[in-house]
Design a protein around this nucleic acid. Structure first.
Lengths: 237, 237
DNA sequence: CCAAAAGTGTTGGTCGTACACCCATGC
DNA sequence: GCATGGGTGTACGACCAACACTTTTGG
């Protein structure tokens, strides 16, 4: 459909930054391009916005086709409109943050029913390093198009919002049964640094439990060794 | 050029939210539509993005044509892409915040060399009230397209950023000679509430003077009556 | 002298940070 | 028992809100 773009016409795409937290690390899903521009290079999953759909709708469709996953969190990130950002023609892209709990992706990866590869994000927002499952190390400039810049913007945005919004909870496997330890792991992965346990708990409890947004359940978490954790749930979504 | 849009094609526009602070109030510039869709109604100034320009470039061009003003502050706000937001066809709009100090606009208004009207913004971000110079009262729903929603988003964003970024300074008539009183007036206009003088000064000094971003000048401000103010300047832009 | 605007000081509470300590479980 | 992860308590400094106060000008 869009293999060759018409001249004298402007196109809009959406690009998705699919994020998850696995084993204490922030992970990003990328796909390897098959077709002509930047063939073989890694890129954010994207798609052209159709005439009969909003950008949000496009992202939803793209997600549903690629990942049989419900309950993904979506947020518009930024619109990139440099004239030469796409060698195929005039393409403006609106980037979206997508957050998916790791347990929705785990089995898909094991069964190889997923058209993406997983990369661990490390480094500061400007000097990002992406480490693939096979050991490949990528940096922003290695990616197709301006996707390196998009990813930098996205990580910064996420780090800036996690303290005073509820996005952090979107990484949890089960928002109706999670421990504060799990939540802290998410925060540490996103922020890329260790947090004090006691202070973290007090802050979260003050901000969410005392306001009724988060309540203690009667269930207990039981992982491997160590004291079982109390499980909380998020209310009203 | 774009009087009638082609079918089967997608267009991108930019819309500008031009903001200024005048006499302690946050003001927005709107233009009255002459042409067909929503003719006669008030709207954000906008323009189609050309094939050879980025959205930022388009905003700059639009600004230069409409307002002979240098040194305006620009920031992308959000991209609105609902399918039916424009009755002419499929139009996606990227909205921008534009901040211009009032003294750059004042003479333009007096000489009527400006294709916009000025509206004072009041009310909370969801229930905005716009009061025109002739006494007209508008609310979000009275505006053309989805511009009411855009303005709400913009005001919220500005309020959220003014405390921990330097946007507030962009409203100042002279960033090389301003008093803390003027700056407080800007903050109060944007936030729509009174602030404590002493606390405001301490916070600003701690955040900007102690870090070297703002320094005291040797000049003094002299308005009407009252003690003359010390003037500060912002460094490194 | 008085009003008005600028600028300073004090005080009490809240919040972030660092750190020390107890609890329950698997091995 | 002991390593491991869960959970609590305290103490100090920084920061924020409220409020009272002094200083310098124009009229």
């Amino acid at each position: 459909m869009h293999d060759s773009l018409k001249e004298g016409q402007l196109y809009v795409t959406v690009d998705m930054m699919i994020l998850t937290v696995r084993e204490g690390k922030l992970n990003l899903l990328l796909s390897q391009r098959k077709d002509k521009p930047y063939a073989g290079q890694w890129a954010l999953p994207g798609r052209f916005v159709g005439l009969d759909e909003s950008a949000e709708t496009t992202v939803h469709k793209l997600l549903e086709e690629m990942l049989p996953v419900k309950d993904a969190f979506l947020e518009q990130l930024y619109t990139f409109s440099e004239v030469n950002r796409d060698p195929r023609g005039r393409v403006i892209s609106t980037a979206y943050l997508v957050i998916i709990p790791w347990n929705r992706l785990e089995t898909l990866f094991e069964e190889a029913r997923i058209p993406f590869s997983r990369f661990e994000i490390s480094g500061e927002a400007d000097w990002l390093r992406l480490k693939g499952t096979d050991g490949t190390i990528l940096t922003g400039g290695d990616l197709a198009f301006d996707h390196g810049r998009i990813i930098g913007t996205g990580v910064q945005r996420l780090q800036g919002k996690i303290d005073y919004t509820e996005v952090g909870f979107r990484f949890l496997n089960d928002r109706n049964a999670f421990s504060l330890g799990e939540l802290q792991t998410v925060f540490e992965a996103v922020l890329g640094k260790q947090l004090d346990k006691s202070n973290f708990r007090r802050t979260i409890k003050a901000r969410y439990e005392d306001t009724g947004k988060m309540t203690l359940t009667d269930r207990e978490g039981r992982k491997s060794r160590g004291r079982p954790s109390l499980l909380y749930q998020l209310k009203g979504e």
